[in-house]
Amino acid sequence: MATANFQARIERINRAHEGLAPARAKTPIRALRSQPVPMSTRRAGRKRLSIFDHMQSMALGSVLGCIVAVLLTGLASENSPWGPGTDLNEMLFLPALAGLALAPILMLVSLFLASKRPGFALFSLSYLSGLVITMLI
């Protein structure tokens, strides 16, 4: 019922357009397809990702950066359990320095991978930010 009324309306519109501009040949208005157009015929556009799609990687990078910064500040502090002269200091010294050296390496790698993997770029940026901000506090 609704389809017949819709088709009749399309025919009336086409007849009205034919009477208005006979000098110019217009193509008649056709009804839209009821089935969706397959993806192969659509234009392939780049999907813009929201920053909120990568909140998990940003949070993980910030937390890991803060942990490394706390380890580094504790290595130099006399009052910390892993301070100078303790057994934990010797055990945590190299991993903490490796975590510090990892930040610029992650940023350099993310320069090349940012367009393909935006989550990794945001992770490395938040890792560096968490590390630097916690070290400054």
Rank of each mutant, 00 (worst) to 15 (best):
M55R: 13
A44S: 01
L75I: 09
P81M: 07
W82A: 06
A76G: 15
L60A: 15
I51L: 14
S40D: 10
L49V: 02
S57E: 08
R46E: 05
L75C: 08
M55N: 07
G61M: 02
D53Y: 06
I51Y: 12
L49S: 05
V70K: 08
R48W: 02
L72E: 11
G45W: 04
L75E: 10
G61N: 07
C66R: 13
H54T: 12
G74N: 13
V68F: 07
L49H: 10
S62F: 10
N79R: 13
M55A: 11
H54Y: 14
H54F: 15
S40T: 09
R46G: 01
M55S: 08
G45Q: 08
L60S: 13
S50Y: 01
L60P: 05
P81A: 11
R48K: 10
R46F: 03
M58C: 09
I67V: 15
R46T: 06
P81R: 03
R43L: 11
R48I: 06
I51P: 00
T73P: 01
E78V: 07
A44R: 10
R48E: 01
G61E: 08
T41P: 00
S77M: 09
S80L: 01
F52Y: 06
E78F: 04
R42D: 00
V63K: 13
A76V: 14
R48L: 06
W82S: 05
S40G: 00
T73K: 15
V70Q: 08
R48H: 05
L49Q: 02
F52L: 10
R46L: 05
A44W: 00
G45V: 09
C66F: 11
W82R: 04
V63S: 15
R42G: 00
S62D: 06
E78T: 08
Q56N: 14
R46I: 07
T41I: 02
R42I: 01
N79M: 09
K47S: 01
F52I: 06
M55E: 07
L60N: 14
A76R: 14
P81I: 11
D53Q: 11
G65N: 04
R42N: 01
K47I: 06
L60C: 14
W82C: 06
I51M: 12
L75H: 04
T41C: 00
G74Y: 04
W82H: 11
Q56D: 15
R43G: 03
L71Q: 12
L75N: 06
D53F: 06
I67Y: 09
G74C: 10
